[in-house]
Amino acid sequence: MTEAMLRGQKGLASVKDLPVRQDGPPPGGFPPVRYARRIANSGPSGLAVVLFSSVVIGWGMYQVGQGNLHRRTLKAEKIAARQAILPLIQAEEDARFVREKKKFMEEEAKIMANVPGWKVGENVYNSGRWMPPSTGKIRAEC
């Protein structure tokens, strides 16, 4: 009864009179299915593909080469710019180092004032040469 109600058909004696609802082929049957092989034999030949790709690859490598040459000039320019300002930067650093070393030696003289036989500053190696501080810093606690 509910099925008849659901399908909305009136005047039926029982459910058995309802039309059967099945999943079937469309009216007129299905269209014919292609099952034969259809492998295309057209298109460029192997030689044509090889030649075309050689041209593309050759042109591409030429462009890569041009780009690399341009990058070489950029790199050279960067190095040249850094070389040009190198003396100025080094001079600034040297001046800063001398200032810090002077301050450090004054403080060392203040600390070691009453230690007998202590030569202030320059307590470096025994050859007569200038050695930069081995830690890269003047003071150990920085």
């Binding site: 593309v56 042109w59 591409g60 462009q63 890569v64």
Partner: peptide, 22 residues
């Protein structure tokens, strides 16, 4: 010319590497 990945991308500003190396 460099192992840096940003450099690899910058090297392709002229032409992408998929053109010569597809």
């Amino acid at each position: 010319g460099s192992l840096n990945l940003s450099e690899v991308v910058r090297a392709q500003t002229h032409v992408w590497f998929c053109v010569p190396l597809f």
